[in-house]
């Protein structure tokens, strides 16, 4: 799915992902969290990657992966400003102020949240979420490494 960097398009993307997640066996809370993570990711691309320009392109891919355990993978790619992935961190939540919560929320509600620089430009974000009870090994919830492009 390709969209332009416009906040008004977030609602239809949420609706599409909600339907995909529900059909994939995620419960209501998990589905809500997945939609929230994607929403926050897209909002970051719109605001920071494209500086709220309405004509930036964003690609969203969703996969249901069955092995070694069932999970949903979402890939979000853009052509906006590149950022060092190591610099994309949550802020101190003790400080009560508006803004800066998006990265914290994304990391909190997904099992994998990995930013990469995309070639030739822009960023790629990989989000993965596993339904409760589907983890092969409960202690192995951090799927390190970069995505296998072969999944596409």
């Amino acid at each position: 799915m390709e969209i332009l960097s416009q906040a008004g398009l977030l609602a239809p993307v949420r609706a599409m992902l909600t339907s995909f997640s529900e059909r994939s066996g995620f419960d209501d809370i998990e589905t809500g969290h997945l939609a929230l993570a994607v929403d926050e990711a897209l909002a970051n691309v719109i605001r920071h990657g494209y500086d709220s320009r309405p004509d930036g392109r964003i690609w969203i891919s969703a996969y249901l992966i069955e092995e070694p355990h069932r999970r949903i993978r979402i890939e979000i790619e853009d052509e906006g400003r590149q950022t060092d992935p190591d610099q994309i961190v949550s802020r101190d939540l003790e400080e009560i102020r508006p803004g800066g919560l998006g990265v914290h929320i994304m990391r909190e509600v997904t099992d994998t949240c990995e930013f990469e620089r995309r070639k030739p430009g822009g960023m790629r974000l990989i989000l993965e979420k596993t339904p409760r009870g589907e983890h092969e090994n409960p202690s192995d919830q951090n799927h390190a490494g970069t995505p296998e492009n072969g999944h596409k």
């Binding site: 949420r14 809500g32 939609a35 929230l36 929403d39 909002a43 102020r97 508006p98 803004g99 919560l101």
Partner: peptide, 16 residues
Amino acid sequence: PYMDSSGVATLVEALQ
């Protein structure tokens, strides 16, 4: 039925 961090930020600002 749904609120993201921009909505939360709006309410934090209102609280301040």
